[in-house]
């Protein structure tokens, strides 16, 4: 069923429509959150937050564009808030740490032993490279290359001009390429 039909039904209080909407978009939103955070637990929590924010905002939602843009805008904001909180927390911890070493990572890679085993090596390398980018470039790259959004849509989601979104994608990609070629690994 089309998203706008589901939204209309949710607005009328149809709970089955909400279930259908979650089933339809859960995987995609979870994947985005995982790519941004690198942690399954955080990604699951953030995905829940995204859908709860969605159901609160849906009554005011007016179908003016693609629904995926709307839900991804919520996801982008949730992830940005989360990462900002994490950076602040890391800074606080670093300030309290005598050695001054950062104890956290802006984009941590999975730490669980079981999950370590199943994470493919190339994904791990890619995530480490992505973690080396600044947050705005990483955000733009994930949305563009993994989720297929155009620069115009990313600009709208992140609230920046089109030129800025384009330059973030370009610079992020150049940065990644440079990292791979510098270390003699195959290009993306």
């Amino acid at each position: 069923m089309e998203d706008r039909v589901l939204i209309r039904r949710i607005k009328k209080g149809d709970k089955a429509a909400f279930e259908e909407l979650v089933v339809k978009h859960y995987e995609n939103i979870f994947a985005y959150c995982f790519r941004r955070t690198g942690s399954r637990q955080d990604a699951e929590d953030l995905t829940q937050e995204v859908f709860l924010k969605l159901v609160k905002a849906v009554y005011k939602y007016q179908s003016t564009g693609k629904f995926s843009n709307f839900i991804f805008t919520i996801a982008v904001n949730c992830c940005n808030d989360f990462l900002r909180r994490q950076v602040r927390q890391n800074e606080r911890e670093a300030a309290g740490d005598a050695s001054g070493e950062l104890t956290g990572n802006v984009m941590p890679v999975e730490q669980g032993a079981e999950e370590k085993a199943i994470i493919r090596e190339d994904s791990r390398v890619l995530y480490r490279r992505l973690a080396g980018l600044n947050d705005t470039q990483r955000e733009a790259l994930i949305l563009h290359y993994f989720h297929g959004f155009r620069a115009r849509e990313i600009a709208a989601m992140t609230g920046v001009p089109l030129a800025t979104a384009k330059s973030r994608i370009r610079q992020g990609m150049e940065h990644l390429r440079r990292q791979y070629t510098d270390e003699g690994e195959e290009e993306l």
Binding site: F18, Y26, F51, L52, V55
Partner: peptide, 23 residues
């Protein structure tokens, strides 16, 4: 890239939370 499999239990939890809010 690699994305862990979606946990159905967690998805149901999200659905339940959303439906509770709607109620």
């Amino acid at each position: 890239d690699y994305i862990p499999e979606v946990s159905t239990a967690r998805m149901q939890q999200v659905i339940q939370a959303g439906q509770n809010f709607m109620e």
